[in-house]
Computed example of a mutant assay.
Amino acid sequence: MIRTLLALDGTLIRGALAMVLAAEHDISVVAEVDRGDEVQQMLWARLPDVAVVDLDLIAGHGPGAVGPCPMLLLVDRPRVRGLHDMLTGRRTVGVLANDVSPHRVVDSVRRLARGETVVDVELVLAAFNANSPLTGRETEILELTAAGATVAEVAGSLGLSPGTVRNHLGRISRKTGARTRVEAVRVARDAGWI
């Protein structure tokens, strides 16, 4: 039996996930926590095999908020900045976006209990690249582009020529690894750069 602790803000979400996990034949929920300052204490008191934790709940408590077991961190995609500190030095960790299906959480709990690592690659890359590679001007251009402005409108708004804006957009695409402006906007938003 995989003893699982849930540390999630929000009674409805935590309760629903507890029901999904408890319905599995090999998983039991041994504790539920909704406050960040209680997570570490409960981890040591209940000694679960795996903890499913909302990163926002423990982000302000630093790496000391982690306990003796593998941890599946659920992360709000736009706010991945706190993830880097939580990953540093952990042997077994899981990282998923907080909008994944319950079945993916169930599978991840099992994998973590076996000592495997569970990773949403996009989230981890965003966490380790939380410092934006974009210059201030590139950020301005991408924000205007994200708002739906055309190249000509961006140029007019910033007092630049359309060619200069296109050059900036090309550099932004290279820095984000995107093939299109829409993809560059998505990458930058997911990383928290805009």
Rank of each mutant, 00 (worst) to 15 (best):
L169M: 12
F128K: 03
A22T: 15
I172E: 01
L17E: 03
E24C: 12
V118Y: 01
L73Q: 06
H84Y: 10
D190T: 08
R81M: 06
V105Y: 00
N167T: 12
R35W: 13
E116N: 03
P162C: 00
A147P: 10
R111C: 06
A59P: 00
P78K: 01
A149Y: 09
V106K: 05
E116W: 02
D34A: 10
P102H: 04
R111A: 15
G64F: 12
V29D: 09
W44D: 00
G170W: 12
V182W: 14
V182K: 13
L43M: 11
T88M: 01
P133H: 07
G159Q: 12
G156M: 08
D37A: 04
Q41G: 05
A155V: 05
P162Y: 00
R114E: 08
A191C: 09
V119R: 15
M86H: 12
R111Y: 01
S157C: 09
E116V: 05
R14D: 10
L125R: 15
C69D: 01
I194N: 03
G67Y: 08
G10Y: 15
V187E: 02
I172K: 00
R189T: 13
M86C: 05
P70Y: 15
M19V: 15
L144Q: 09
V185G: 04
R91E: 13
V30L: 03
R171D: 14
H61I: 03
I27R: 03
P63F: 08
G148Y: 15
R79E: 02
T145L: 05
G36E: 09
R91N: 05
T180E: 01
V109T: 09
S28W: 00
L87Y: 01
V93D: 02
I194W: 01
T176K: 08
R14Q: 13
E116I: 04
T135K: 05
R104V: 09
N129W: 15
L123W: 11
R91C: 05
V53Y: 04
L87A: 06
L5S: 08
M19D: 12
G170R: 14
G15A: 10
L21N: 07
A152H: 07
R79P: 00
V165W: 13
G67C: 08
A51Q: 10
S28E: 14
V95Q: 01
V165I: 08
H103I: 10
V154Y: 00
V106H: 09
L87G: 02
G62Y: 02
M42Q: 14
A127E: 11
L17H: 06
E116Q: 07
L123M: 11
I2C: 11
I2D: 11
A149T: 04
G115N: 04
A130I: 07
P133D: 03
A22P: 04
N129C: 14
L142W: 08
V39Q: 05
D76A: 12
S173Q: 15
D49Y: 07
A155K: 01
A97H: 09
I141G: 03
G177R: 08
V52E: 04
P68T: 12
L125V: 11
R179P: 00
V95M: 02
A126D: 13
V93E: 03
A31I: 09
H61M: 07
R104T: 11
S101M: 13
N167W: 14
A18C: 14
G177S: 12
E138Q: 13
T150L: 01
S108T: 09
A184F: 15
V118A: 08
I27E: 02
N98G: 13
E116D: 10
V124E: 05
V151E: 00
